[in-house]
């Protein structure tokens, strides 16, 4: 990583797939900004390719994707894979409605963190920081 040690964490936030519920993602964007991070907000209906391009262009440290329509088991692993295929060591955090029973599958797929309903601003910032700290491991 050739960024300065003290530079703020830069996070790409996006909605993957067709789902349009963006309340949570917008709140998370503001929470991360308040926590001193830089947010690259891509918004709705992004593909994994569009997100990978943004991560490359913005030299991002983490990707946050949000899903509310039970698409996480399909879409989240694809996001992880797409970043890996592009040779990017960038952790993926998933937000939205993910039942506990799916957490193991998400971890196995390489998702670095999952934020469910009711996560506080501290939870959100901590989850992203911890995910970023695992880079290079």
């Amino acid at each position: 990583m050739n960024k300065k040690e003290n530079s703020p964490i830069r996070v790409v936030l996006a909605k993957l797939g067709l789902d349009g519920h963006d309340r949570g993602l917008k709140v998370v964007a503001r929470m991360l900004r308040d926590a001193g991070m830089e947010v690259v907000y891509l918004g709705l209906r992004q593909t994994t390719e569009m997100i990978v391009t943004a991560v490359e262009q913005e030299d991002a440290d983490a990707v946050g994707i949000s899903m509310h329509n039970a698409g996480h088991l399909t879409l989240a692993p694809r996001m992880v894979q797409a970043l890996e295929d592009a040779g990017l060591d960038v952790p993926v955090v998933v937000g939205g409605i993910v039942p506990d029973s799916d957490l193991e599958a998400m971890a196995e797929a390489g998702v670095a963190g999952v934020l469910g309903p009711g996560a506080s601003a501290e939870d959100v910032a901590k989850c992203v920081r911890e995910a970023v700290a695992t880079r290079g491991e």
């Binding site: 797939g17 067709l18 789902d19 209906r45 329509n69 698409g71 088991l73 399909t74 879409l75």
Partner: peptide, 18 residues
């Protein structure tokens, strides 16, 4: 379902998983 709401068929590439 989401594809129907968005006017996309089930065999559309955006519909996979939804």
């Amino acid at each position: 379902d989401m594809p129907t709401l968005m006017g996309r068929d089930s065999d559309d590439e955006w519909s996979i998983g939804e």
